[in-house]
Computed example of a mutant assay.
Amino acid sequence: MQSSHPYVNIAAYKFITFIDAEQKRPEFLAICKQLQLKGTILLTPEGINLFLAGMREQIDQFLAWLRADERFADLEVKESYSEKQPFTRMLVKLKAEIITMKHPLIKPELGRAPAVQAQTLKRWLDQGYDDNGRPVVMLDTRNAFEVDVGTFENTIDYRIEKFSEFPAVIAAHKDELADKTVVTFCTGGIRCEKAAIHMQNIGYDSVYQLEGGILKYFEECGGAHYDGDCFVFDYRTALNPQLQETATVQCYACRAVVTPRQQLSPQYVAGKSCPHCQPEAVAAPTEASGAY
């Protein structure tokens, strides 16, 4: 696979106190340019989030450089491959948060919420309850347009338009989730990790994050208990439970997700318009933060 797809695409994040992010920015930019990498790196006081692509040797050199910083020595990376360089430039950005919650800074290194592994979650969903006999409820922490591409069966979807809405929404529904085990999930772990910690902080007594998110679940369990595909914030748009690119696309004009069925509409013109572009359609989301 790698021989015919020479570019290595990596995605990684880690929540860790990173007070020298501003000072480190020039170093990150210099090493990436030296290695001819392209993509985006977010540096924040609460950690790092990155999406990069380059040749195998250069990617490995970058990861060796990054992991030499003991704060990132255990950084876990998701890899995929492509025939072409999917990014057009190299950006290293400073932000206030890895994923914007607009809430007092959460520091997962002071204590993560419990994580449930994919195989364990599948077993819980098979039997309908966790190892303590509590009913299991799946809670999607992603934006509504992502959920529409696919999600777990019978999941709770509060139709949030951006992650900063999550704290208020989850506080309002606390009573109805009492006596249940709540498993938060997202694409790759960032949002559900932050969400689960926040839920613990406001008094939820049985909450887990799905370790590695939907993509890790697909890798280990396929599509069991899942309907549809998984939206991803890159050129592939959506992956099926076999982690293969699907025919789902994003509209070039309005950035809405356009399913294969919607592509049959006369209003869909590749690179120009789609059914969502019409005045009566709901405005497409603009938040494409790459928040896995």
Rank of each mutant, 00 (worst) to 15 (best):
P275E: 08
V136A: 10
D69R: 00
V269Y: 06
T248S: 05
Q278L: 15
A12D: 10
Q244P: 05
A171S: 11
N9E: 14
A53L: 05
H198D: 01
V169A: 12
I48R: 02
F233Y: 07
N49T: 04
C192P: 04
Q242T: 09
P241E: 00
G150A: 03
I156F: 11
A115T: 10
A21T: 10
L239I: 14
H5R: 13
I41C: 11
C192V: 00
A178F: 03
D148W: 04
S273L: 08
L210N: 03
L243Q: 12
A168T: 14
T248A: 08
I214L: 00
G128V: 02
A171K: 13
H173A: 05
M138K: 11
A247S: 03
I170W: 05
T100L: 12
K216M: 08
E109C: 01
L50S: 04
D227L: 12
P104T: 10
L177T: 00
T100K: 13
I160G: 02
R159G: 11
V249E: 09
D126S: 02
T88A: 13
G290I: 06
A196I: 07
D74N: 13
C251W: 01
A30G: 10
Y204S: 01
I156G: 05
P108A: 01
N201G: 14
I214M: 02
T17G: 12
G128D: 01
